[in-house]
Design a protein around this nucleic acid. Sequence first.
DNA 1: GATGAATGAGCCTTCATTCAT
DNA 2: TATGAATGAAGGCTCATTCAT
Lengths: 208, 208, 208, 208
Amino acid sequence: MQNEQSTTLTKIIEVSLNEFSLKGFRGTSLREIVKKAGVTTGAFYGYFKSKEDLFDFLVKEHADYIKGIYDQVYSDFSKLSLENQIKQMEDYSSIGLEKMFSYARNHKKEFNLILNCAEGTSFQNFLNEVTQKEIEATEKFYDILKSQGIKCENLDPLMEEIIIKGTFSSLFTLCLLDIPYDQAQKSLDQMFRFYRGGWDSLMHFSKN
Amino acid sequence: MQNEQSTTLTKIIEVSLNEFSLKGFRGTSLREIVKKAGVTTGAFYGYFKSKEDLFDFLVKEHADYIKGIYDQVYSDFSKLSLENQIKQMEDYSSIGLEKMFSYARNHKKEFNLILNCAEGTSFQNFLNEVTQKEIEATEKFYDILKSQGIKCENLDPLMEEIIIKGTFSSLFTLCLLDIPYDQAQKSLDQMFRFYRGGWDSLMHFSKN
Amino acid sequence: MQNEQSTTLTKIIEVSLNEFSLKGFRGTSLREIVKKAGVTTGAFYGYFKSKEDLFDFLVKEHADYIKGIYDQVYSDFSKLSLENQIKQMEDYSSIGLEKMFSYARNHKKEFNLILNCAEGTSFQNFLNEVTQKEIEATEKFYDILKSQGIKCENLDPLMEEIIIKGTFSSLFTLCLLDIPYDQAQKSLDQMFRFYRGGWDSLMHFSKN
Amino acid sequence: MQNEQSTTLTKIIEVSLNEFSLKGFRGTSLREIVKKAGVTTGAFYGYFKSKEDLFDFLVKEHADYIKGIYDQVYSDFSKLSLENQIKQMEDYSSIGLEKMFSYARNHKKEFNLILNCAEGTSFQNFLNEVTQKEIEATEKFYDILKSQGIKCENLDPLMEEIIIKGTFSSLFTLCLLDIPYDQAQKSLDQMFRFYRGGWDSLMHFSKN
DNA sequence: GATGAATGAGCCTTCATTCAT
DNA sequence: TATGAATGAAGGCTCATTCAT
């Protein structure tokens, strides 16, 4: 009975993931969802307050997780001694991305919704928001360096935004591809090499 | 009188650019457009066949231009002698992007529609389509190298897709920023340096 | 210039005959008419007060003619001496139909409109109206007979209506066929024979 | 409660029968229907897919029944022995019409829609279609006669069409009259006598 | 929990007609 | 006469949501 009971919810989720991903939030009709799920509108509203509530339910937890990664990473980082902070800074800069990658890869469907099907929801700016978080995080790192008297060039905040957005775009594109784990991991490594190479070129140049 | 002429059309375009950019194609109501434009629905349909027709009108020409750049660049390139082709290949790889940039920068509003507000229109896959064009173009370049006996490593097509998509993301992000021309141009140069650096890292590595 | 001047009107008439006949009065759009006629709405309203006015113009004269036939025939008939009235009564009963036939056959397009495309206009009951006229006419004939002491059976007015409607249906079906004059005339004769035979059967029977 | 059930549907049907019969399919507005029925547009679309779907629902079953009569009659007829076929042929020729009559008489409102209010629907050619069926049926009968070496004159197909259409016109006119059953039946008999007399006249003549 | 009929505002679009030029 | 942009009511239909059962 317990698993019978949740059939309604299960079907709604299953169908709505599919519908939203095909037609976007606005293009998806609730009546279509419940019809395809074989449930009634009334049943639907027993579980969700609204269409947006359903979308939130499918997606919010995961969006939050991604955004929370920055706090997590920063919290871990700040527990290190200053010496270690400086030593491991470079590693930490990619730790966040790696976490994102592995998390998003395990929730492909949901991230597809967030990234490509969220027009009309509160998630339509997700990529920009995460970009902002990344920028803030980067700035925090640099503040530490500076507070230690370590001189470092002024990164153009515009460049940061531009390139970080590209990085996320690449990262999520990779996440959403239907490829086996090994291949994805290998591609991710290459991707990191690519972007590190990019950053190096940029720094080098501005140093001189 | 001359500048009064077709105020209706002018207002519709002006208002709809704004509405679409705020609410997306699907989220924008025609009635709202005409109300804000101070015209009637009937007047609207004197100029456009449908809501989608209006969106097309705002955007199609520019989307086509971008897609046409590849043919243009390739056509120019193929007129070069083989010797010059090989010599200038690296330049040509960025010419297309530069053209895109300057064009898109002059049509910010429209590209914002194409990139961020086109769910429900035929433009919703624009970025993917351009990515595919770029991939095809890249392949053509490599075919030339190979036909000249110049050995070059096999690029993982996945990596190509991932990084090219990121590149476009960066490029268009930059385009859409509200910054003065000089600054944008400088940022574009940096961006190119960044991405060239990235590619170099990737090649270098796979070579060894 | 004179014939240039009327081009607008000519085109409107030509096109509207066609459009109305294909889609009926309600299904035909005025804008479609003027577009296909290559004229403007404004020009149209220079000639006609409304869409219905156009339909009337195309059709009214001819509908009136048909309805007027009864008065004509009766007027001719009443000029005869009583003796001749009685002698020629049978002939006169078909004279009206023959006149209708030859008139309608010369205005096929217009009668097609009246009969099959007039839903939504004042002509939508044309057939019933003509049927009523025929019934009235028949009654007048019989009154004459009766006034002369000639006994004749009471025709069931229902039967009259039913059969007269059928007769008109046949008559107009025949009119609208695309067949050469000779054939049509031959068919008309046969039709008369048919209906006279019908009436004879009916009278004979009710006599006994 | 049971008779309260589906008041919405009942009201829609009742009102729409009336509206369609007054204004025709095209002239009838859905909004008017639902307003007069005291229901909402949404409720309407719970029962019908479209305005045309409603018209179909009201009418299709009955139109199909009429068209199906020919198959029915022919199927019965073909089960007779050849001898009986020839003997009863004359009877069978009217059986179909009688069935039509009694069926249509029981569904007056609906047949009024089919015959007089169907412009813009798939039923607008109903009378022609039934006429064609009757012509085909007649031809089948004659084929049987001929196959038995029974000589029979070639009926002019035009005459067939003209007269059959008239017959149907009469038949349906009779059906739609508001008269008591007995009277209608008597009129029908007379009508048959009329048309048989007509056919006899025609045959007789062409024989000589 | 579940039902599903009902709500009614809102959608895009078409229409016959007007009117300043 | 002719233009054709503009009118705005009305069209058929879909939507997310509610609620009595």
